[in-house]
Amino acid sequence: MKGADDLNKMVPVTILTGFLGAGKTTLLKRILTEYHGRRIAVIENEFGPEGIDNDLLVQDSEEEIVELSNGCVCCTVRGDLMRTLNDLRTRRQAGDLNFERVIIETTGMANPGPVCQTFFMDDEIADYYRLDAVITVVDAKHGMGTLDKQEEAQKQVGFADKILISKKDLVTEEEYQALRSRLVRINPRASIMPVHFGEADIKQLLDISGFNLNTILDIDPEFLAEEHPDAAHDHHHGHDHGHECDEHCGHHHHDHHHAHHDDQIGAFVFRSNKAFDPERLEEFLGGIVQVYGPDLMRYKGILYLKGINRRMLFQGVHMMMGAEPGKPWLSGEKPSTKMVFIGRKLPQEIFTRGLEQCLV
């Protein structure tokens, strides 16, 4: 387990993703040209007309731009990205390059999952770089239509730690709230903020620690209220998933509100005040990840385990899952479990029943 000092020495990496035309490149240019005392290496997959004008960047800033040769990030970039990151590391260690953080800009059509996994798969990369967060830019004007048409866009929302909504001034408040509610249903753990790229606070975009296990598992209250209308009063149950499941299980079961947006990607929360049997839980989660790994975007939890007097923190991306001990439970504190799963058509009933069977 890495201590705070180790984490401080690691190079933080932000993955910037978003819908085509939502303003990702504008945001990136702004991060690069605005002086904030940080030197950034950008890994850009040059793809289509959105690519940044290289002459502009190399002249105006000291950042080193690394292009991925194969163009599209979504198919074969994994090997390429590892090579690129290792090359940057070697050159930085040799003193040829000076940068403090890395931003990876993916194409408008890319699924950020394989990019995230790179940071968990290769030991050299995992020891040197710290994946900080996935930031997804959504266009308020076309966001609804893009989500309807492109599952890739839903995945980008599902992976996000922070969602920035651009062009809010082009829609009514009602349209904005409808889009925001939909984003919350797809991903209740990402913070959502409207952004004007001329004045986005860069500090709010860097050092989010979305992949740090100690960060609080915040879930948007709007999501909990929709999932359980009596969410405020449900903490005394051993669990609170007594609903029957239909074929929509695994996305939101309040389809009557949103019949026209049957998103493939959705989220659900599991809570319990009973302890898990650690061995049974490990076996169950191992099985779930084998079967549903490709459809799991992000999952994260604070676990109450039998025989362990501190909370266990766990998270995963696709098939990669990790856990580490967190703070001890305080004497007046009621230990409990809270887990959130975000993925594609996940069978909530199977997850919930399986997790319940792992309780002591």
Rank of each mutant, 00 (worst) to 15 (best):
S191L: 00
M82C: 08
F99R: 06
V134Q: 02
T146D: 15
E199L: 08
C116W: 04
A178T: 09
Y176E: 13
R185M: 09
E152N: 11
Q177R: 11
E175Q: 15
D127N: 14
F197E: 04
F99V: 08
N111M: 00
A160M: 03
K203I: 08
T106D: 01
V171L: 05
C74S: 05
V157H: 01
K162F: 00
V137A: 02
K155M: 04
A178S: 10
V195I: 10
I202F: 04
R130E: 04
L81S: 07
N187K: 08
T76P: 08
I65K: 03
Y176D: 11
S191P: 01
L97C: 02
E67D: 13
T172F: 00
M82I: 12
Q150H: 14
E124L: 15
K162A: 05
L179T: 10
L183D: 07
K162P: 01
V184I: 13
P194Q: 05
V102Q: 03
V157N: 03
I165H: 14
I192T: 03
T136D: 00
V137P: 03
Q154M: 14
V134H: 00
A153Q: 05
T136I: 00
S61G: 02
A110T: 05
R185G: 06
K167L: 03
D201L: 06
I186C: 04
D122N: 13
R101Q: 07
V134D: 03
L68G: 07
L97P: 02
D122I: 10
L183I: 12
Q154C: 15
S69D: 13
E152C: 09
L179E: 10
I192Y: 00
M121K: 01
Q204N: 13
K141A: 15
H142L: 11
K168Q: 14
I163T: 09
A178V: 11
N98R: 12
D122W: 11
V195C: 07
L206E: 12
V157R: 01
M193K: 13
V138C: 02
N98D: 15
I163L: 15
M121E: 07
L81C: 08
V102C: 02
D127A: 14
D80I: 10
L88Q: 02
G108D: 04
F99S: 07
E63K: 11
D123Q: 03
E124Q: 15
A126G: 13
E67Q: 15
T136N: 01
H196A: 10
L88E: 00
V137S: 01
A160N: 05
R78G: 09
L85S: 08
A94T: 05
D201A: 07
R78P: 06
H142C: 09
D169H: 10
G71F: 05
N98L: 12
K155C: 09
E63L: 13
S69H: 12
R78K: 13
D132W: 05
N70W: 06
Q204R: 11
V77P: 01
M82F: 06
